[in-house]
Design a protein around this nucleic acid. Sequence first.
DNA 1: TTATGTGAAACCGTTCACAGCT
DNA 2: AGCTGTGAACGGTTTCACATAA
Lengths: 225, 225
Amino acid sequence: MRGIPGVAVVRLAAYRRELADLLRREEATVSSSELASRLGVNAATVRRDLSRLGSYGLRGTGYDVAHLLARVDAALALDRDWPVAIVGVGNLGRALAGSRGFTSDGFRVVALVDVDPRVVGSRVGTTLVEHLDDLPAIVAREHVAIGIVATPASAAQHVVWRLAEAGVRSILNFAPAHLEVPEGVAVRHVDLAVELQVLAYFGAHGEARRLDRSRPRPAAAAGPR
Amino acid sequence: MRGIPGVAVVRLAAYRRELADLLRREEATVSSSELASRLGVNAATVRRDLSRLGSYGLRGTGYDVAHLLARVDAALALDRDWPVAIVGVGNLGRALAGSRGFTSDGFRVVALVDVDPRVVGSRVGTTLVEHLDDLPAIVAREHVAIGIVATPASAAQHVVWRLAEAGVRSILNFAPAHLEVPEGVAVRHVDLAVELQVLAYFGAHGEARRLDRSRPRPAAAAGPR
DNA sequence: TTATGTGAAACCGTTCACAGCT
DNA sequence: AGCTGTGAACGGTTTCACATAA
């Protein structure tokens, strides 16, 4: 049962969002087809995704919203604490630090890191901006589990190595660059320029395909195999 | 060429980035395997992707960097102008407006839109923030081709209808919500919370997986506490 | 020899369709 | 009756492997 396909993990996160909404509305149960239509996916896909977590559906009725939400949270490991460090305190880094998505469900921005002497030592909100050289200490002190790379592309690879050395094994990269990572480190990329270019392609080719940018980005590349 | 698979379009944008870099370094040619290793993909995949644009490779040598870049640009329709409107001028909207990725290669932020009276009428940089109600006029005036949704989730669907009505056919959504769109409108989603949750999953399930474009990777350690 | 372009195979996620619970 | 869980069919991408060209 281990080994949920990357795309399916992305869908789990989407199901979670809908489930949280249903819970808020005090709906007791949902069917796979209802979840499916809310998210624009096939009902069989929903059932297969959820069945990977175990059989928690009730035939004839659907899924218990609260229970299923708890199972999804457990699968996504959201029942733990995930301290986040943001490296690169420019416009984007600042915006991310204040973003809703970055401060909920166990995610907390616990550190801001930069190298620019004009920024290091200042505060963003209540958080002090510290120097990249202190990363090992910061990671140890705050138990940082996820690193956000919001630096220019030219610095991104260097930052990734520093993060990896310091023990961070999950990285979300906003820099427009492909990154090499050591074995055991997971990376996901969010490249704004790429998103726009893809939209340009579809805009120009008049195809309105539904293609969500859901793609996991595995770790490391390393040597030939 | 018509009908490039969505994932391949994303890779084209990545190749473009590498090609631009190679051009900057004045490299005259690249091989598929060099591009492949730079991006962590298979060389055959690179060749198949590029061959969809036509046969521009030179056997025994590789691809002419400048020529290939021009072909990729043409395929992605980057030889045109793509005026962008950002709806939702909060932290994220502001950061995006000033972002590098949003102001290059034909993309220009030509309009900022919000509904909050405290924001409408103000300026971000040199751009005036206008009211959502004026969207049809704004789109017509600026020839807006791409709309960015950077509003709260609760407003996102409404904004999408407004954008679509006004004639915008490409939408990049940053709100944490699934969006219904009319036929002929392309949407891409960037959900920061989802990205973090996916990283939490991989961080927690670090074990044994294989490296593929869409799969988790082997990891050696456990998650955070 | 080196590297492209591409049939054909392998691989993998998606969807169907229905058996099996409640 | 209604809806889940899943074997099996399906469809599309990826990768192999090699004919082909420089």
